[in-house]
Amino acid sequence: MLFIKCPHCGWRSQNEFSYGGDATVKRPELGKQVSDQEWDDFVYNRKSLRGKHWELWQHLSGCRQWIKVERDTATHEIFNTLKANEEIS
């Protein structure tokens, strides 16, 4: 079970969180014309990376905040966590 540092609450066990997928995907702006390809990339197409990966988690049984977590998908090592409003550098 992973041990995740919630930027709001501190270190908590994985079972307090739910997974939310790739954190680098940006939703196209509302009302903007987007091609089929752009929309498919947003909705479906993911890289399934091996290695470092920024992903979203929600601290569901805690502060309910969505957070960004940089995790190695192969080793589970977690390098960094950010609040929702903090930009991935």
Binding site: R64, Q65, A84, N85
Partner: peptide
């Protein structure tokens, strides 16, 4: 709702 309010 929280997802869209906090992230999008």
């Amino acid at each position: 709702l929280e997802y869209y309010l906090q992230l999008v």
